[in-house]
């Protein structure tokens, strides 16, 4: 469970709120998507929820360990995938100790769960963007996180890898009962796996609701300042939905 109550944030020394009076409540196994234009506070909200930033107003309640998955692995050191995942155990390793056999076993389990076995000994800088993203998720799993916070997990991936990632996240929430919050620039992703969505309109205006309502055409059009269309189509007998921008409707003025 993770819940926000009247959450508000603005940067120190600035009068404009990024978001304000934001409430939501996510149960175990639910998924929430954070949508909004660049600079409207998606990552900031995620960091507040991860405890990396302190909200200016409001409170956050969580009943489980939080695993923050950054957009990219930023260390200049070419650690092996196994070493990276093992670092997820930091919380469980004392200041003057090193990981135990149990820590290593948990790291191996997490790697196996994500299906990265074959890559365990590879240097992380030799992996593709999609595989690196998976390694970071494995690290959060090794940390025994029950709430996953992902910062644009799919933004650097091709369509096929996006599908794999979404399938993995769906499995983690449905079968493992993980609570998942992710920022994304693709409303289709929200529609695909999320139960709820938060729209950050900027200027302190934020709304939260069921994903179908939040991804209504008029709402998204207002959110992005661009004509957005929802398309329903038949994909092998199963009805699917996608959301596309109508770029040609008039490019925004530069």
């Amino acid at each position: 469970m993770i819940a926000a109550n009247a959450l508000g944030f603005r940067h120190p020394g600035q009068s404009a709120w990024l978001f304000r009076d934001l409430d939501f409540h996510l149960e175990r196994g639910q998924t929430l998507a954070l949508l909004g234009r660049n600079g409207r506070g998606k990552t900031t909200l995620l960091k507040c929820l991860a405890g990396l930033l302190t909200p200016v107003e409001g409170t956050i309640a969580r009943d489980g360990a939080v695993g923050y998955v950054p957009q990219a692995f930023a260390s200049p050191f070419p650690y092996s995938v196994f070493d990276v995942v093992l670092m997820g155990r930091a919380r469980h390793v004392g200041l003057f100790s090193t990981p135990t056999a149990e820590d290593r076993a948990r790291a191996r389990e997490a790697i196996a769960e994500i299906g990265l076995d074959a890559f365990a000994d590879r240097r992380i800088d030799t992996l593709s963007g999609g595989e690196r993203q998976l390694a970071l998720i494995a690290r959060a799993l090794a940390a025994q996180a029950e709430i996953l916070l992902l910062d644009e997990p799919a933004s650097a991936l091709d369509f096929r890898n996006q599908a794999k990632l979404l399938a993995l996240l769906r499995t983690l929430s449905r079968e493992r009962g993980l609570t998942i919050l992710m920022t994304t620039h693709d409303p289709t992703h929200a529609l695909e796996i999320a139960d709820r969505a938060v729209l950050l309109h900027g200027g302190g205006h934020a709304e939260e609701g069921a994903v179908a309502d939040m991804c209504a055409e008029d709402r998204l059009t207002a959110l992005y300042g661009l004509e957005m269309r929802r398309l329903e189509f038949d994909a092998g007998g199963r009805s699917a939905a996608g959301i596309l921008p109508h770029y040609g409707a008039g490019y925004p003025r530069l």
Partner: peptide, 25 residues
């Protein structure tokens, strides 16, 4: 001696402040 003992923590610190904090350090 303390430096050698905290060698695993140095791995975590080398990820950068934010990631290290995200891992509970």
């Amino acid at each position: 001696v303390p430096l050698l003992l905290m060698r695993f923590r140095i791995n975590i610190l080398s990820l950068g402040d934010e990631e290290a904090r995200g891992l509970g350090l």
